[in-house]
Design a protein around this nucleic acid. Sequence first.
RNA 1: GCUCCCGUGGUGGAACGGUAGACACGUGCGCCUUAGGAGCGCAUGCCGCAAGGCGUGGGGGUUCAAAUCCCUCCGGGAGCACCA
Length: 802
Amino acid sequence: MRYDHATLEKKWQERWRAEAPFAAPDRPTGKKAYVLDMFPYPSGQGLHVGHPKGYTATDVVARKRRAEGWSVLHPMGWDAFGLPTENYAIKVQKNPKEIAAANIDNFRRQIQSLGFSYDWTREVNTSDPSYYKWTQWLFLKLYERGLAYKAKAPVNWCPKDQTVLANEQVVNGCCERCGTPVEQKELSQWFFRITAYADRLLAGLEGIEWPERIKAMQRNWIGKSTGAEIAFAGVTESGEEFSVPVFTTRPDTLYGVVAVVLAPEHPLVATVTAPAFRDRVEAFVTEAAAKAERERTESVQKRGTALGVSVRHPLTGANIPLWIADYVLPQYGTGAVMVVPAHDDRDWAFAEAYGFDPLFVIAPPAGIQHGEGAYTGEGIMVNSGPYDGIVNAQAATDIVDALVAVKAGTRAVHWHLRDWLVSRQRYWGAPIPIILCDDCGEVPVPEKDLPVELPDDVDFRPTGESPLARSASFHDVSCPRCGNPARRESDTMDTFVDSSWYFLRYCSPTEDDRPFDPALVAAWCPVDLYVGGAEHAVLHLLYARFVTKVLFDVGALPFDEPARTLRNVGLILGEDGEKMSKSRGNVVNPDDVVAAHGADTFRIYEMFMGPFEDAAPWNEQGIVGVRRFLERAHGLAENVGQASDAALHRLTHQTLAKVSADIEGFRFNTAVSALMILVNAFGKAESVPQQDWETFLQMLSPFAPHLAEELWERLGYDESVARQNWPTADAALLVEDEMKIVVQVDGKMRDALIVPAGIDEESLKGRVLASEKVQTWIRGRHIEKIVVVPGKLVSIVLQKAA
RNA sequence: GCUCCCGUGGUGGAACGGUAGACACGUGCGCCUUAGGAGCGCAUGCCGCAAGGCGUGGGGGUUCAAAUCCCUCCGGGAGCACCA
């Protein structure tokens, strides 16, 4: 019988569609596993071969868990709002709704063609009013708690997409979506106060099993700096007193300050600059303003100019010149720094350019020379008055204490994280549920009026203002508070708001009068295993953590981290080793792979490519080997018999132990390899013992569910192989009666002996020394020692020849 | 520039400090076949007829034993990049 993957896979997929055997129970009974993929953005291009790599991994785990008797929630849905769909809709002059629906249908068809065991009864779509109603509810919850606010602030503006962007969505100064350089604009926008959660977002990383790399990126993004805010007081030429607050993480270097430098944008610049310096300073400020932030921050040169005024050192009273320089950024810290060239690389460069002498206040450890650059390490204090002779860490504490005592400083913490800008001047997103009333100001839309639905009567083209602002039917409303005519907020929300809570919706996807059933969420969540790409490290994964913590505080959730374990799926590259892209012409279409080789082959190939987390190039040749493996397995079904075979039985159980452990450890490549070895052994046997064959099919079923079901059915069983209990490896069979002992002489392998498993050390040594081969290597030499590693090897060390 | 990760056959990759190269691709030879192959068998790190020697980016070290641990250099990737 031929292995006709197309017919066979169609048969099983139809059955799964009709019978929904993978629907999760309403609530878990016993152990539960919530196994989640990052839901896809249903783009017009269709599924990428990279998607099924993560989906297959979660499917293998989900199927194994079910076989182990756990309640499993394994859902799929669509992150359907967003720019690419909207832009395409504008291009073809259709409503984005239609485009999104078509894309979703295509994605669903493609994903279902791969036989994943999703619970399709729980599908969610973020662009559906029944979903975004609750995204709007989430906005209101944040608003109620003062965590959503509108403010005028300098924001990132993408001139191509005609919308503002969150900091997380600006990569190297460019729009994350389209690559256009981002401009700074002063605009009134909606923000989520994620900064209020900075410390908890940092602390929470300790308790979750996420890749260190992702945690490091989040830590870095949150960017906690501990130090001091120090006031440097001064007097202008006209006699007015002023004070410059400076943030530093190195108060220990305070005695090494040679200048204080402000950002060119600092408000004090206008009021303290000495009249004689004004022209030069103004020219410098204008020039700095003209430069894009990128240009300014990329230069290694530290350019600046003096303001012609001094400030006093808070502890020594010494006069310290006040400057401005382009390397000081207005948004970070206090927008002012103390310049310590001896112990900071940037300050060193600045001092070199303008002739300040470095003043060393920390003696480097012996052997390290001063003078060739800044010394940023630890050491003993020097040139620091009363602090000389103590270690710098202690000096940092003592100096801040002294500053506090004279009211010239305080301990301070600064964060890199900034509030999440969530407004978008675009159509295809969830409308922000706020009404703007001339009398009452901002009025939240009452919950009973949700959802605020997207109007259809609009011109979608972006103009820099939300297209919603041009729909009279949308924006003309009466104020819910006073009843007077008012206007709806016309911006929509960042799509990352939609995806920040979707994993909660899967627990009770049809709830109509609340976002989720708290009891069901408490029963299923948090997510036990979350799989997706690393590109979301400081986007979705940070936002989801933030929102989870907010909902925890609201009392809606009994946990405050969304996912216990996170795994990153490695990229699949084109055959040329480059990222797949249309322009390179190296894109592999999953539909073609399924048609040519079958879904099971596709799934196993992606698992077999290499370590799950590594990037790996596609190889059309390589897929053939997997296909052959399944062909062979298929062929073996005709040779299943009742006779038993001790060696095959043992190998089957050894394979079972390995495959089980490898799935747990995400080592799918070696699990597949073990299955191949077993099939090769079955192929060499007279006939395949039915008992071992069944065990094999059970192990195969998470990887190649269609073929496994088919061959299981051929054994005459009515019940699906997916419903069988995951077998347990027989420990007795994992231990061999005989073992191979490697013999090394002076570290080189010289022989290998087969000995009984229970052999004692003395007899083993005897057997080893009796070996002919070993004798030829030790003849005429004295043995210094013999190292015995039980069950592994014997290492003979000879005395050095004279 | 800083931080982290990684360098193993022609290729993707295996290898609790203990037989380096599992498994698979490719290649070679042979077989089945009218023929073809995404079929079957055997071989396949390098040098060597063999015995044996050499081999995990280069150099050094620790160890009875190093792909694995330490130092250093080279190469590649990722993240951060004036975070005061």
